[in-house]
């Protein structure tokens, strides 16, 4: 009897192992397409960029020779790199701050029971939806120093005597780029914050009212702490997207005047297609990735510490 039950238990275990193995194979089969696509579009370009950054490559012919870390040494000793990095940081911090401030402000307004709320919620997405090229064209008309409506209105109002060159002078150019960036991307913050605001229980506000908190105290003691988690995600995503923003800045100022608004993505483009140095462009791209990675790790650690 014992022998029989032992035998049946051994056969059950064997059957179980066979099933587990079959499930494991099925799992591999199911995950394979994702892994293949991920490898083709993420891993291969990443490794390829790192590999290319170790060569001096002439873009039109793609011919190159091994230079090791020379591209990196050259890059780090170039003042243009540091200027571009500084511009990149000013642009990212500036536009992100405005996006967050206006995004939260607008979300709070749209969260109120105002009569045109539905229409306003749809309209607010408009800048985010329109193509960057169209947005830049519109803003270039608005900013134009000869026939732009902005200068016209300001001169009519007597605020200025001479038209302002919004995109050709510093610091105007950087401020303009930051403002247009904030205008274009703040709807993302509005939508994400608004979604979170709608899920904050009303009773928290009511409890705060009874506890004697005014409107400002309720914002800082109830609303803002409740938004913390969504803001962590928004800041992280928008910081990554803003840091590598190319088209808006390129179309608006082309990095000028001179290199005053040139950021690292523009530098990568310049090296690859204006100076025909694909190896150096790859080195810039790799350094950009390393900088973003560093800031993101620091940021995630800090927010984790705070929420703990």
């Amino acid at each position: 009897m014992t022998t029989l039950s032992q035998a049946s238990s051994v056969s059950m275990r064997a059957e179980q192992t066979r099933l587990e193995r079959r499930y494991a194979h099925l799992g591999l089969l199911l995950i394979a397409p994702t892994v293949l696509i991920f490898s083709a579009v993420i891993v291969y370009p990443l490794i390829s960029a790192i590999y290319m950054s170790l060569f001096s490559i002439f873009t039109p012919t793609l011919e190159g020779k091994w230079v090791g870390v020379d591209n990196y040494v050259q890059l780090l000793s170039a003042s243009e790199f540091w200027w571009s990095l500084l511009n990149n940081l000013i642009w990212t911090v500036g536009t992100l701050t405005l996006q967050i401030v206006f995004g939260i402000g607008m979300a709070l307004v749209l969260h109120q029971n105002i009569w045109f709320r539905s229409l306003a919620r749809s309209l607010i997405l408009f800048p985010y939806f329109i193509s960057t090229v169209v947005a830049v064209l519109v803003w270039k008309w608005l900013f134009n120093d000869l026939y732009g409506i902005l200068n016209h209105l300001m001169m009519s109002a007597g605020l200025i005597d001479m038209p302002i060159d919004y995109l050709g002078d510093m610091p105007n150019a950087m401020i303009s780029v930051i403002l247009v960036g904030a205008w274009k991307y703040f709807p993302f913050v509005v939508i994400a914050v608004l979604a979170r605001l709608q899920s904050i229980p009303d009773q928290l506000y009511e409890a705060a009212k009874i506890d004697g908190a005014g409107a400002v105290a309720r914002f800082f003691d109830v609303t803002l702490p409740q938004l913390r988690e969504v803001l962590v995600v928004i800041v992280m995503l928008r910081a990554i997207w803003d840091f590598k923003e190319f088209d808006l800045i390129f179309l608006l100022t082309g990095g000028g005047p001179i290199i005053s608004t040139q950021t690292l993505p523009l530098m990568v483009y310049k090296e690859a297609f204006a100076l025909n140095q694909l190896g150096m462009a790859s080195a810039y791209a790799v350094v950009m990735m390393a900088i973003m990675l560093f800031f993101m790790i620091v940021y995630i650690r800090k927010t984790r510490e705070k929420s703990a």
Binding site: Q203, L204, A207, A208, I210, P225, R228
Partner: peptide, 14 residues
């Protein structure tokens, strides 16, 4: 000069 206890307690979660 009142205090209220809510059904959901309404404690500040943070």
């Amino acid at each position: 000069d009142i205090a209220m206890v809510f059904q959901s307690y309404a404690l500040y979660p943070h």
